[in-house]
């Protein structure tokens, strides 16, 4: 079978020549004697979405903040494949470089949209900020792109000059996503992106995120305690407990055939609808 052989070779080529976008090595963060997270290792490849699940206090948010540069880990490396210089450890890179990265190739979606938005600035200004931060100085272009992004996150163009305080929770969250994605980042950190939203609003947001992830070829790390969210969004899963990674694997495999005692407990605790 010729076609069959081509497929095999394609599969192989696609999985083997690509290098990881993010390599996490032995990350540890302590709060005094208490462990925030420790011994975390993984590779994230371009286009991959990885979920990090665990209960409150499991260290998943600490880990995400260490990876995104919001917290300084006590040990370990977070190696990002930068556009200009290839793989660089972002823990030891200079602060200006890291901040530039977080305005360009990285994005961070907060659980509470208000943490990630400027509430005194219009929706258009919120989206435009990252463009202006990287040097766009043409009002017309900035506004056009802001309006384009409002459309992509399903917010009416007529709301471009309204402040986010006048938006519903779901709209604020979508605005936050637009504000983050407008510079075409390659890696998105999300902290409970659907937390605190109504179920129907969650579904809409998940659908939107899935579409954007595929269209833009985004890689994403999603911290959540909601297993339904990771089943729909994440390719891979990492389960954390007490600061340690207890299990990793394909999302559906971890959820349908959990190996670790804690994961089994977690999966069996979910209410079936």
């Amino acid at each position: 079978m010729r076609a069959d052989k081509d497929f095999r070779e394609n599969t192989r080529a696609r999985t083997e020549t690509v290098k990881p976008l993010l390599q996490v090595r032995e990350i540890e963060k302590r709060y005094g004697a208490r462990i925030g997270c420790t011994g975390v290792n993984f590779d994230l490849y371009p286009g991959e979405v990885m979920g990090i699940v665990g209960e409150s206090g499991s260290g998943k948010s600490t880990l995400l903040n260490c990876l995104a540069g919001h917290l300084e880990p006590d040990a370990g490396q977070v190696i990002f494949d930068t556009r200009a210089d290839g793989p660089v450890d972002t823990v030891t890179m200079s602060e200006p470089e890291r901040r530039m990265l977080s305005r360009t190739d990285w994005a961070f979606v907060h659980q509470h949209a208000r943490d990630g938005l400027r509430t005194s600035v219009s929706a258009g200004g919120n989206i435009g900020e990252r463009l202006m931060a990287v040097g766009d100085r043409h009002y017309g272009n900035i506004r056009e792109r802001a309006i384009d992004w409002l459309g992509r996150v399903e917010i009416s163009e007529t709301r471009v000059d309204d402040r986010p305080t006048a938006f519903s929770g779901g709209m604020q969250q979508r605005l936050q996503i637009a504000r983050n994605l407008v510079t075409g980042p390659r890696l998105v950190f999300m902290d409970e992106p659907t937390g605190g939203l109504d179920v129907s609003v969650q579904a809409r947001l998940l659908d939107l995120l899935r579409g954007l992830v595929r269209e833009m070829g985004l890689s994403a790390l999603i911290v959540t305690h909601d297993l339904a969210v990771v089943r729909l969004l994440a390719d891979r899963l990492m389960v954390m407990k007490d600061g340690h990674v207890v299990e990793t694997g394909l999302t559906d495999q971890v959820l349908d055939d959990p190996q670790h005692a804690y994961t089994q407990l977690l999966v069996s605790s979910v209410l079936q609808v």
């Binding site: 602060e95 901040r99 600035v121 219009s122 258009g124 200004g125 463009l131 009002y139 506004r143 471009v160």
Partner: peptide, 18 residues
Amino acid sequence: SLEEYGLMHVKLYEDISQ
């Protein structure tokens, strides 16, 4: 210190949009 002045233009953007 890091010359991150995008925010200044956000203010001007808001001016023009309003």
